[in-house]
Simulated scan of single mutants.
Amino acid sequence: MTGGSPQSVDGAALRSAQFRYFDLVMAAFVTILLLSNVLGAGKRAEVDLPGIGIWPFGAGILFFPLSYVLGDVLTEVYGYARARRCIWAGFVATLFMAAMSWVVVVLPPASDWPGQGAYESVFGQVPRIVFASVIAFWLGEFANSYVLARMKILTRGRHLWSRTIGSTIVGQGIDSLVFYPLAFYGAPGWPVEAMLWVMLSQFLLKVSWEVLLTPVTYAVVGFLKRREGVDVYDSGTDFTPFRTML
């Protein structure tokens, strides 16, 4: 691609196209996904909100929704097929991260190393939660990308805000509906009422992040479309999630 004014192109015609920034956006997508799981998932935080009181939340929620924002950018700028490759890359990277964490945690520590307990607390992962997380991510991200690509065709490329917010509502809704029951249903300390409340509050926070970041999404999408020189529509795209080829 040579850049310039974006031209409307069907995604199926760009299988062999080379883009300037695609690899960078893909790397940012996978990086944010992994870091939000490593650094944020294990910490419970709380803030004192005026009129509401103490509001507990998982620290990962501050950054995990950025993966959905980048998922929107990938689909909007580069099309569903390339977004699909990024989702699979993130899925495999998350599985590898979980496997690596498990191996490193279970390795016998040196007899004079005092950090094993803290290491287990931070990096030790419950298999049920890991399973729930990767399944919810896979389903939610593919739903997000599919809805955005379909809505782009229906809206003829207008009203980007409706596509980013609408696809996030669907994607994050599926993510939350899958993750919390798989991870916590029947678990000690997780009555159904508490699980449903956390699921709803986390969903609302994630969608709110998308809404607040809409101006940023507009700026990034506009920049990338101008520099790449294309505006991709997935009219002839095969929407199966079970492939990585373009």
Rank of each mutant, 00 (worst) to 15 (best):
G140S: 08
G140Y: 07
G140C: 09
F142G: 07
F142I: 11
A143P: 00
N144T: 07
S145R: 03
S145A: 15
S145K: 08
S145Q: 11
L148T: 00
L148R: 03
L148Q: 13
A149I: 04
R150T: 04
R150L: 13
K152Q: 10
K152N: 04
I153F: 01
L154E: 12
L154R: 15
T155P: 01
T155W: 13
R156S: 14
R156G: 05
R156N: 14
G157S: 07
G157F: 11
G157Y: 07
G157E: 09
R158I: 05
H159N: 13
H159M: 12
L160N: 04
L160H: 02
W161Q: 09
S162D: 03
S162H: 04
R163P: 05
R163T: 05
R163I: 06
R163F: 07
I165N: 13
S167M: 08
S167G: 06
S167P: 04
S167D: 07
S167I: 08
T168H: 08
T168A: 14
V170R: 01
G171K: 05
Q172F: 10
Q172P: 01
G173D: 12
G173E: 07
G173A: 10
D175E: 12
S176M: 11
S176I: 10
S176Y: 12
L177W: 04
V178L: 14
V178Q: 03
F179Y: 15
F179S: 09
Y180Q: 09
Y180E: 03
P181L: 02
P181Y: 03
P181S: 02
L182Y: 05
A183Y: 11
F184S: 02
F184Q: 01
F184W: 11
G186K: 09
G186C: 04
A187T: 09
A187G: 00
A187K: 12
P188M: 06
P188G: 04
G189T: 00
G189E: 03
W190Y: 13
W190E: 00
P191C: 02
V192I: 14
V192W: 11
E193Y: 03
A194F: 04
A194I: 08
M195Y: 03
L196T: 05
L196A: 15
W197G: 07
W197A: 13
V198Y: 01
M199E: 12
M199L: 15
M199N: 08
L200R: 12
